[in-house]
Amino acid sequence: MRQHHDMGGLPAGPVARQEHDYALWEKRVDALMMLLSQRQLLRVDELRRNIEALAPDAYDTMSYYERWISAITQTLLQRGVLTSDELGRAMAEIEAREAGR
């Protein structure tokens, strides 16, 4: 079965010459990938596999670095570097902290 990310040759509209300056959080996601990869805690092909595992509609609507952080997190869960519980608690704390700012 052709996978959703494997799109070479499919019909599509004109190339929108869109660009944006990457935001700090996007650069940090990129930095996480590089640092984890240097420490052998993540391989680029694991990252890609986890991006490819996204549902087609998520793949299309998430931004590039949203796909990346989602896939980095999946890899760290699969490898046992992080657990869902610690991530869930940390994310709730961060939201509370940010809401109080």
Binding site: W25, R28, V29, L32, M62, Y65, E66, I69, S70, I72, T73, L76, L82, E86, L87, A90, M91, I94, E95, E98
Partner: peptide
């Protein structure tokens, strides 16, 4: 996902 990035980085 921004919250997720912060959480992963801080952990």
């Amino acid at each position: 996902y921004q919250v997720m990035e912060i959480a992963v980085r801080e952990l």
